[in-house]
Amino acid sequence: MTAPAERGVTAPAGVGAVAAPPMVELRGVHKAFGPLEVLRGVDLTVRAGEVTVLLGPSGSGKSTLLRTINHLEKVDRGFVRVDGELIGYRRAGDRLHELSERHILRQRTHIGFVFQSFNLFGHLTVLDNVVEAPVSAQRRDRAETVAHALELLARVGVADKADEYPRRLSGGQQQRVAIARALALRPKLLLFDEPTSALDPELVGEVLDVMRDLAGSGTTMVVVTHEVGFAREVADTVVFLDQGRIIERGTPAQVLDHPREERTRAFLSKVLP
């Protein structure tokens, strides 16, 4: 139903990938925290190589939506698939059985997640932060992982901080390390939960630069952010959420410059300078 708009958006990435399953597929996702319904039937498709930005007022459910993609939040109804694989559940007939924690942890190694508050491990050096998961979760060779980690740290521009502890780094540097840590698992997909919201204004740019670089290299990304400028420049698709529903989606030009919905317009008028 939304195919025409998306095909137009992702022409370069989608050319050879007509038959491939979408990288992310959410169908009828519902989620409530007690009496509070946060997600009320969300359908979303993200193709491989695409950058999708989720916009919306606070409390609209965009962070929760992002967290359902790697099962940090369980869904109450509906399902999430990443690269064709059900996340967090195993289907038997018409039943979805929740997977064991070990299984879910293994699924998450394919999905990188970057937090608003970085959540670097404070007692480990920058290098150990990056090396930890590939070695313990993917059982990769340590020497090879260290080499890869140093490469990634160089890519995000903090190679000289490899032996520092995270608290000695600026917020922007910490977030770039967190991105390198997520990339170390060689994920199929990267999720960003307001990656620049905890940063001083002058540090936002350095993190967005790294993300821009990733988007340019064909990484599939879903980004929750308030950086409308970043969305306009980098996103293939912009999705606008309000009160747990997707209100509008399309190219940045469609959603940001010519929003069809009144609520989108009202939100943008507050966010845009």
């Binding site: 940090l72 942890l105 508050s117 959540n119 491990f121 313990s136 979760a137 840590r181």
Partner: peptide
């Protein structure tokens, strides 16, 4: 220990016992 530490470990798929020994206990 900040809840974000275990959440990050879970998001990285670090096995449960390892989360306890390497991330939670030292902090």
């Amino acid at each position: 220990v900040d809840a974000g530490q275990l959440e990050a470990a879970a998001a990285l798929g670090i096995p449960r016992l390892h989360q306890f020994r390497r991330i939670l206990l030292p902090q």
